[in-house]
Design a binder for these strands. Structure first.
Lengths: 150, 150
DNA sequence: TCAATATCAAGAATTATTCTAATTATCATT
DNA sequence: AATGATAATTAGAATAATTCTTGATATTGA
């Protein structure tokens, strides 16, 4: 019994970064338990997880959550501009809490996805010849390649 | 009977642009009948058709072609760098014979897809902060928005 | 011509995602 | 706290694009 309590206490020591506080509401969206945990995982796992990745991780805290709910949560978070959805070719969508304007470099050798930002002071409109009158609502810049090993 | 022949002759007058000649082989890829017709349609229809769009059009000339074959043809043409595959969000892939470096602006109001090029003299490496050693194999720049109606 | 290889067709299988219907939780009022 | 209204969640079925499988055809090279 003592051993059981000790184990329980030990297991409470966080091996993850300190828990992130998430408010009751973000951008007018009520943070339900499921949405909160989904969002928390995106904050912690910065490696652009898929819906299924999130599902597997979130089950630690909400064992009864369904994959459909994870999809629902991710969708509503995207719709409210709280996270971004990122697509590579026709692979599963990935999700990312980084809202600043950035693209993604997909290292084919390792599978790692790196965020890529513009050089300071440069914006997309500076470099592209857009159709006259174009009003841009969303931009996706995706690069595939490898990182040279020195 | 005469009327029938006359109608048949009239129907032979091309309403499409003059037929495009396609060589026996492109980039080391043998142009079979199916590949040739698929490629011809991409050359003619510059509106970024989906595999199914191509399938419907190609059936005029090859009534027995299957959708699987259209997918096969498109895939092998992409693999040989003869055409490009373009993805918008999670919609059906679209295909495009324009090989020059360019992005795509998707007008949400009309559904029209415009090719977008860099301003002269500017290349992507000029404007992005890439991870050190990054070797880029492929770039996808996708914009969504509307065209302002003056 | 004949064998080896490549391509094609038809339909089944796969996979990510969305939908449906039933249940549960939350909120605003009393 | 009970009540009704609304929103969220669940489980599993449905969907749609694409890929796979298998057997048939076509093409090439000897």
């Amino acid at each position: 019994m003592l051993a059981y309590f000790a184990a329980a206490m030990v297991s409470k020591i966080p091996d993850q970064p300190l828990e992130i506080e998430i408010p009751e509401e973000i951008s007018g969206l009520r943070m339900t338990r499921q949405r909160r945990e989904v969002y928390r995982i995106l904050q912690q796992e910065r490696n652009h997880p898929t819906a299924n990745d999130v599902f597997m991780r979130v089950k630690d805290r909400l064992p009864n959550i369904s994959l459909a709910t994870v999809y629902n949560c991710l969708e509503v978070l995207v719709q409210h501009g709280i996270i971004r959805q990122v697509n590579f070719e026709r692979e599963s969508s990935r999700y990312c809490p980084n809202l600043s304007e950035h693209g993604h470099f997909h290292d084919e050798a390792t599978g790692v996805i790196h965020d890529v930002v513009f050089k300071p002071g440069i914006t997309l409109a500076d470099v592209l010849q857009l159709p006259p009158g174009a009003l841009i609502q969303d931009v996706e810049i995706t690069l595939r390649g490898k990182i040279a090993t020195t």
